[in-house]
Nucleic acid binder design. Structure first.
Lengths: 140, 140
DNA sequence: CGGCATCCCCAGGGATACTG
DNA sequence: CAGTATCCCTGGGGATGCCG
């Protein structure tokens, strides 16, 4: 299946007609990209990462910052991000309890490519909306 | 909600509490990024785009290329990508019917940022897997 | 061949209540 | 405050069949 293609070695910025396959790569997940995208591709992970880009936040601060996320989802999302090494969780032995979340180096390094994507989205959103409209005009 | 932050030109490094919603912000989608991500963030869009990076393909060729996608999902994914202007669909009046899919300029331009992300995923996948394992060691 | 329509199932996720 | 446990329901998406 094509999943392998996405996992190719280096992303040539030049248009390369032949995507090379690396036959020997097969760890836990068949495709690193699918693996990564399955995580950050969910409804909330990117929002959480973006929120933490501003600095350390506590659980409820994150809830308020994102606004429309449930406790359960925030909790689950944070655990996964922590698990994958994007986020560091620090518990303070206080009363009432305090837990702080912050980006790790890995998490911060991810924001680079992410910003590229965000930038592209910003730049091209108008075109997309326009395409969508004109498509709506042609079809129903 | 935080969605706006992702759409901003430059993410504010100051922790800016935005507890209130902006009721007036409502184009088609509240946030370009959410809008774009909701599309390409699904299970299949990126795979389709990657497949078409190699060149024009027909419907069944795409099915075979991706391998584990159903007709319905491929059809739906292609329609959305076409709708958003990433993909061009060409129907040939032949018997049997022939339909070809190819990337538009917009679609191709998107592969730039995408490759950055792919590159990052490739580079850091090992670290992620490692983090995941060590987390599994600490917790259950 | 290239799809849309239909059926059907189950897991993702919201709401709520409870705990440390 | 910072979660976990439980319930419940919706809709995403697979399988299949039909049509141009």
């Amino acid at each position: 299946m094509l999943a392998r293609t996405l996992a190719g070695p280096a992303p040539p910025l030049e248009p390369s007609p032949m995507p090379e396959r690396s036959p020997e790569i097969a760890f836990d997940q068949p495709c690193p990209i699918r693996d990564v995208l399955d995580r950050i591709g969910d409804q909330w992970s990117l929002l959480v990462l973006a929120a933490l880009d501003g600095g350390t936040l506590r659980f409820n601060e994150l809830m308020r910052a994102i606004g429309d996320i449930s406790k359960q989802m925030l909790s689950q999302t944070l655990r996964r991000l922590e698990q994958d090494g994007f986020v560091r969780r620090t518990v303070f032995a206080e009363v009432p309890p305090r837990v702080e979340y912050e980006l790790t180096d890995l998490g911060r390094s991810f924001l680079g490519p992410l910003r590229q994507l965000v930038h592209w989205a910003d730049e091209n959103h108008r075109d997309i909306v326009r395409a969508r409209r004109s498509f709506g005009a042609r079809a129903g």
